[in-house]
Simulated scan of single mutants.
Amino acid sequence: MKSKIVVINGHPDSQSFCTALSEAYAEGASASVNRVETRTIDLSKLDFELNLKYGYRQRTELEKDLIEAQKLISWADHLVFVYPTWWGAMPAILKGFVDRVFLPGFAFKYRENSSLWDKLLKGKSAHLIVTMDTPSWYNRWIYRRAGHNVMKRNILQFCGITPVRVTEIGPVKPSSPELRAKWLNKVKALGSKLA
């Protein structure tokens, strides 16, 4: 049976280092000796309204790109999110994507007359590949990995996706071309190992 992987590039700039990391992961997974199918979702190329304008009070119709994204997420066994940390969390485009795609009835469902919910994306795993300019130790001990925890616990695990691994890449801003090449090779190897 083939593994089915969807790599989601959550950076709004198609020329970003996150794009290169996304491509490296997909390349590593596709080149694996294991049976694997890889698809990608590049948020910089999607056309959708970022805001869930009415919350859950009124339905906001999904654009064609988001309907296709839901199909790919349903199809996948494993989701890989590649994105930068800005102001301690994911960029607005990725938060908007989550708000619009991980909807009740698709990702979770509240139980009637209960504070409990059903996790509709069970059976999937995820890997977060997160670039940062903050040193890893500072993110861990001072910020308590707040952005990672939101994505891992409050979003993905809330919907039943587990386990969720996190790989930090950085600090990116002062990095040399040689260090970036090492990071690309590391992410490519992660893709080939998982696949």
Rank of each mutant, 00 (worst) to 15 (best):
K2P: 14
S3W: 07
K4N: 14
N9G: 03
G10E: 05
H11N: 15
H11L: 12
D13F: 01
S16K: 02
L21Y: 01
E23S: 13
E23V: 11
A26C: 13
A29Q: 00
A29P: 00
S30D: 00
A31L: 08
S32K: 02
R35V: 10
V36M: 06
E37M: 11
D42H: 11
L43C: 09
L43I: 08
L43S: 10
S44P: 01
F48T: 04
E49C: 02
L50P: 10
L50T: 13
N51G: 11
R57T: 06
R59N: 15
T60A: 12
L62H: 00
L62N: 00
K64E: 10
E68D: 14
E68C: 11
E68K: 13
K71W: 12
L72E: 06
A76S: 15
H78E: 02
T85P: 01
W86H: 03
W86G: 01
G88I: 05
A92I: 05
A92H: 06
I93R: 10
K95R: 15
G96Q: 11
F97G: 03
F97M: 04
F97K: 03
V98L: 14
D99N: 13
V101K: 02
G105T: 06
F106C: 03
A107V: 08
K109A: 14
W117I: 10
K119A: 13
K119R: 14
K119H: 10
L120K: 07
K122C: 04
G123C: 02
S125L: 08
A126T: 04
A126V: 04
I129H: 05
P135C: 08
N139A: 13
G147A: 07
H148D: 08
N149G: 06
V150R: 05
V150W: 10
M151V: 09
K152L: 05
R153H: 15
I155F: 07
G160R: 05
P163T: 10
T167Y: 08
G170V: 00
G170D: 02
G170R: 01
K173P: 01
K173S: 08
P174M: 13
P174T: 12
E178H: 06
E178F: 11
L179W: 08
L179Y: 06
R180A: 02
A181T: 12
W183R: 05
K186W: 07
V187F: 07
V187S: 04
K188W: 00
L190T: 03
S192G: 04
K193P: 00
